[in-house]
């Protein structure tokens, strides 16, 4: 990180003054180059975020009539059992889906990075879920999970197991959703990790082999450290995605399912408040709350990265 800055510090003093003079034109270019992104980002994203933060301090009436009411929404949040349930569901989903998902992706990437036959075929198959539409994925899995006509319970019945209602049993519903999330994200994470693995120069391994390092040591002293920036990227993106989970719950649990109390995530709760009940003020408060959570978790990860992520 920050290699450019470090390099500049190494340049002799005389040259540094020169560069400073060039700074103005440099800055001009920089602003021009970020302009389209920043303008678009501001109109499409940042302004709505600012509005949302403002609305979180308001009570909402019909058709966008907002009335300032200070921190009432936040006070209401503290006493809202559903909100805390959704928060713990969101974390549960993240814990169920991210570590296992990343590990399996890493395993798949690792195995595909060996010299075996049929790599292309495996790779293709592992990627299939990520090129499928989410509605199609939810549809198939709902059908697989179905307790009357589902394939999973049918197969289990051969082993004498009376399978649960994967989608309707409070003990299993969240696990079932996490399984679909993992299933559909392995390929995506695997691409990135595989790229990272292939970028590790072979010379490192050759050197280690000469030193007589066993595979176990090779893995922990070469592969993991060198892969760590990629792994970090994957984890950051996965955690953010998991904390923002909505689609799968929306499509797989549905609103009439009693297990919704076990599977409702924060974004899903926001969606019900803002769009179903039309309470945009409180909905905004929920989102601000989630946003703070995500920021905090991401900050923690960035702080933690110093301990295990190696940039060369």
């Amino acid at each position: 990180m920050g290699t450019a800055i470090k390099e500049q510090a190494c340049i002799p003093k005389k040259m540094r003054i020169k560069i400073k003079r060039a700074d103005i034109s440099k800055w001009g270019w920089a602003y021009l180059m970020v302009a389209p992104t920043m303008i678009g980002l501001f109109i499409l994203n940042i302004w709505p975020i600012i509005q949302t933060i403002y609305f979180s301090f308001c009570s909402s009436g019909d058709f966008g009539k907002y009335e300032w009411m200070g921190t009432d929404n936040y006070a209401r949040m503290a006493a809202d059992v559903t909100l805390w349930q959704s928060t713990s569901n969101t974390f549960l989903f993240t814990i169920l889906s991210v570590p296992l998902g990343v590990c399996l992706s890493l395993l798949a990437a690792q195995l595909l990075n060996t010299s075996i036959k049929g790599k292309t075929i495996y790779r293709t198959i592992y990627f299939l879920p990520i090129v499928s539409a989410p509605a199609a994925i939810a549809m198939v899995w709902k059908w697989l999970y179905n307790c009357d006509f589902g394939l999973i319970n049918y197969i289990l019945s051969f082993f004498g197991i009376d399978g649960p209602g994967w989608n309707t049993d409070p003990g299993y519903a969240m696990i079932s959703i996490a399984v679909v999330a993992i299933w559909s994200s392995i390929g995506y994470n695997m691409i990135i990790l595989l790229a990272g693995l292939q970028n590790i120069p072979k010379t490192y391994y050759e050197a280690a082999e000469i030193d007589g390092a066993n595979p176990f040591r090779k893995y922990f002293s070469i592969t993991l450290p060198l892969l760590s920036p990629t792994l970090f990227f994957v984890i950051i993106i996965s955690v953010m995605g998991a904390l923002k989970q909505f689609d799968l719950v929306y499509m797989m649990t549905g609103f009439k399912n009693p297990v919704i109390t076990q599977t409702r995530t924060l974004v899903h709760y926001f969606y019900t408040q803002a769009f179903d009940i039309s309470d945009k003020g409180y909905g905004s408060t929920i989102i601000v709350f989630l946003f703070i959570i995500i920021m905090f978790v991401t900050w923690l990860q960035f702080k933690g990265q110093r301990k295990w992520v190696h940039y060369n």
Partner: peptide, 29 residues
């Protein structure tokens, strides 16, 4: 490119806005 290779005033703030967008669920947009 600009964020990575050019040091310009405000780059950190602007880039943090990019990160903020990624942290917010898209439903609010």
């Amino acid at each position: 490119y600009a964020f990575a290779r050019i040091k310009f005033p405000g780059s950190k703030i602007l880039f943090s806005l990019v990160l903020v967008q990624m942290m917010v669920p898209s439903q609010i947009f």
